[in-house]
Simulated scan of single mutants.
Amino acid sequence: MISVERVIVVRRPLSELVAYMEDFTRTEEWDPSTVRCVRLDDGPVRQGAGWRNTSRFRGRETELRYELTVREPARLVFVGENRTVTAVDDLWFQPEGTATRLRYRASLTFKGLARPLAPFLRPEFERLADAVARRLPEAAGERIP
C-alpha cells in the first residue's frame, strides 16, 4: 500500500470548503492527474453518491468508480476501485481562524500483478500529492463564492 498525506490551509470557512470538496467532479480542478470526473447519480451529494473518475498516470489513463462512504461535517471519505487498485481519499477539516486546515490522505492498495510495483511508484505519488497541495487552495478559492 502507498499512503501520502498533506496538510493544506485553504482561505475558506470549513463549511464552504467541505461543500466544495464533497463534489468529487471538482477533482478536475485541483488534482492534476484527473482527466475527467462524472457524477453517476443525481440530486444533492450524499453518502453513497458515486463518480467515474478518469486519471492519467505515467502516460496511461485509468478509470475508477468512486463512492462517498463518509460524509460528516468535518470529514469526507471517497473510495475508488477498479480491478488493479483500491484508492481511499480521506479528508479531515479543521477551522483555523477564517481559513480551514485540510488534512488530505490518499491511500492506494494495488491488486494482483500490480501489487509488487507499489514501492517503485511511491515517489510519483509523493510528487502528485505535492502538486495537489499547491493547486487545491487556488482552485477552491476561485470556485467558492
Results as ranks from 00 to 15, higher is better:
Arg46Ser: 12
Pro95Cys: 08
Glu126Phe: 01
Glu63Ser: 09
Val70Ala: 13
Glu28Ala: 11
Ala139Val: 02
Gly80Pro: 13
Thr27Ala: 12
Glu142Asp: 12
Phe24Cys: 04
Arg12Tyr: 03
Gly97Leu: 03
Val45His: 05
Arg115Ser: 07
Asp130Phe: 01
Glu16Gln: 13
Arg115Met: 02
Arg52His: 09
Gln47Val: 08
Leu108Phe: 08
Glu28Phe: 06
Thr25Glu: 15
Val70Gln: 11
Glu29Leu: 14
Ala129Gly: 10
Thr27Val: 08
Asp42Arg: 05
Val10Met: 12
Tyr104Ser: 01
Gly50Ile: 02
Pro95Phe: 00
Ile2Gln: 08
Pro73Ser: 07
Leu17His: 08
Leu108Ile: 05
Arg115Lys: 10
Glu28Arg: 13
Leu136His: 06
Glu72Asn: 10
Asp89Ile: 05
Arg46Thr: 07
Asp42Val: 01
Gly112Val: 00
Pro137Ile: 11
Pro123Cys: 03
Glu29Arg: 13
Pro145Ala: 00
Pro95Met: 10
Arg105His: 07
Phe125Asp: 00
Leu136Asp: 01
Arg105Phe: 06
Glu61Lys: 01
Phe125Val: 06
Arg52Gly: 09
Leu102Arg: 04
Val9Leu: 13
Asp42Ala: 05
Gly80Asn: 01
Leu68Trp: 07
Phe120Leu: 06
Leu121Phe: 05
Ala106Leu: 13
Phe57Ala: 08
Met1Trp: 03
Ala133Asp: 14
Arg36Ser: 12
Ile8Phe: 13
Trp92His: 14
Ala74Met: 08
Arg12Thr: 03
Ala74Tyr: 00
Leu117Asn: 07
Arg39Glu: 11
Ala140Tyr: 15
Thr25Ala: 13
Ile2Trp: 08
Ala133Asn: 13
Arg39Trp: 06
Arg65His: 09
Arg12Met: 07
Thr69Leu: 03
Val79Arg: 07
Leu117Gln: 06
Glu29Asn: 15
Val132Ala: 15
Glu72Asp: 15
Val132Lys: 15
Gly112Ala: 02
Thr69Ala: 11
Asp90Gln: 12
Arg39Val: 06
Leu102Val: 09
Glu126Leu: 06
Val4Ile: 05
Tyr20Asn: 12
Gln94Ile: 02
